[in-house]
Design a protein around this nucleic acid. Sequence first.
DNA 1: CGGCTTTGACCTGCGC
DNA 2: GCGCAGGTCAAAGCCG
Length: 618
Amino acid sequence: MEKQGRRHHISPKLFHHSVSDCSFNASDDGLVDATNNTSSSNPSIPIPIPIPIPIKQLFRQTKEIKEMDFFSDNNIMNDDADDDEEPRRQPQQDCNNNPPAVNTGLNLLTLNSGISSTSASDIHQNSNNKLMTSLQVELERLHEENGELKTMLDQMTKSYSQLQAQLLIAMQKQAQNRLREPIKCEANGMLARQFMDPRPSAAASIDHVRDPSVAYSSGKTPADHEAFSSFGPSNLNIEVMSTERDQYQRRLQTNINCAEEALDRSSQCLGSPNYTSKSSDPNLFDDDNDEPKRSTDQEQVPVADQIPFRKARVSVRARSEAPMISDGCQWRKYGQKMAKGNPCPRAYYRCTMASGCPVRKQVQRLAEDKTILITTYEGNHSHPLPPAATAMANTTSAAAAMLLSGSTTSKEAHQYHHHHLANSGFFSNSQLPFFASSMATLSASAPFPTITLDLTQSPMQQFHRIPPPSSSTFPLPLHGYHQLMGGPGHPIPGPTYFPPNYKATPPPAGVSLGGQRSTSTHASGMIETVSAAIASDPNFTAALAEAISTIMGAPRPHQGHQGGININDGDIANNNAARGLVASTNNSPPSANIGLPPGSLQPGSPQLPQSCTTFSTN
DNA sequence: CGGCTTTGACCTGCGC
DNA sequence: GCGCAGGTCAAAGCCG
């Protein structure tokens, strides 16, 4: 199905060209038949989609098609198996034999008509045969070339996977080393998490699942800071007992894909019941963990389940007169509340595209500017999404991934993040030079880590944008969001921008991220780097980018500046969010489709994993 | 009649 | 312990 769909997606243009060209050049029946033959054979031809077709090649295709129709009969006879290759290769024939090809074409036309009239000369046939032979040779050559390219792609994919695995292992080891210290320091044997977990429930002591969001919101005491800092980046997403870390690491090493799955799954887990403020909603956790993580269950729980359940939110600010931005999903309003300090009510929506879908969103207008609609997404779709919805989902997913990775400064999170996003297709178009993003801010004061994507301001406005003083925010580069919102036709062609004067509002007292991180005595390596950067430099993004660069072991996309704040197009219409679009980043791994589940949906490519379709919540 | 919206009640967490 | 605020539930009403 997909293949055919893809094939139709690609070939119809060619076919269309060929038809029009043929019909235009000659109304000959033979030509039309040849074209039809070509088209009919196309649907059965599998096309290797991942390999982008160069524009030149496309040109050659269209150019060739005229003559491809010419030889369509022969082509069909000679090569039925490679329909997708046909159009590309035939053009080359033309290119190679172009000057004579014109005559050849005429001759062929004559020949075609002559065939019916049985007046074709042997000379023409011989020349045609020669041409066909050369064409076949050329086709074979192109086949081989294509095969080599595929092989290269596969190798790159494998290499990337291997590197990723190695990186994860290395980071895991590093994390393990760091974990020992903090745990040892806790004489009572309690996890650092317990210190920061305000919940009175004893489950907190049992919980092996970190609750960073709680730390974010409630880590106000020095102990909490310390505890939170002990959850340094190296701790990754895994806050497990020391006895379980090895096991986790083993599992991690065993199957690197589990890492991604973990992120995916964790993203689907809106939060453990003992972690979220609300557990009364059965639907919310139906597909996730219905039970709080306990030590007894821990060992049996898959790696994915051990990932901390962190409730992340992605807030999108957009100007819209409509009561709700169209993000491609179906929503059902289940509540409305008057929020304090805002005359506009806050509406609560639940995704109704599938029963049990945990995704919810809140819609509220900004009190200061009622034309601005604030849509806050929460949760992860448990069902396939239409392309339009996937666009927004990918955006929020990317934002959340960035949020989580940034807020936790987790190496794995970064790793997962990059890999995840790459696989999601959100960042998959590595060939695109654009590195678009929107202004994104992270809120540390919110009950849940929230990333805000502000699409209401023009690039220049955002350039000098000042974060809302009421919230603890810092600039966060969000790749691709801009393109999602603006569409492929509105990418930011130039380098990304970083507001020189941009200054993130320091976190409020008691929620000082920098203080938390800097006080960590266990942080080292990247953690220290990031922590120090955070503490000393409000430009967290710069530090984050640096850390990511270090982690990834590869030069991070320059983004045109250090710290890379990308400015989105202020002309982006709110509803454009629903236009599925591909964002790009230089960060995209060579194999953007690594581990891409079949059900995934990518703008312009296969569907993303469901877990990728919306923002992640660990 | 089914689906959706409205709206008051209820639950929970948090601050004082 | 109490009050507040956020979030959710569920009954009632509306609409196509």
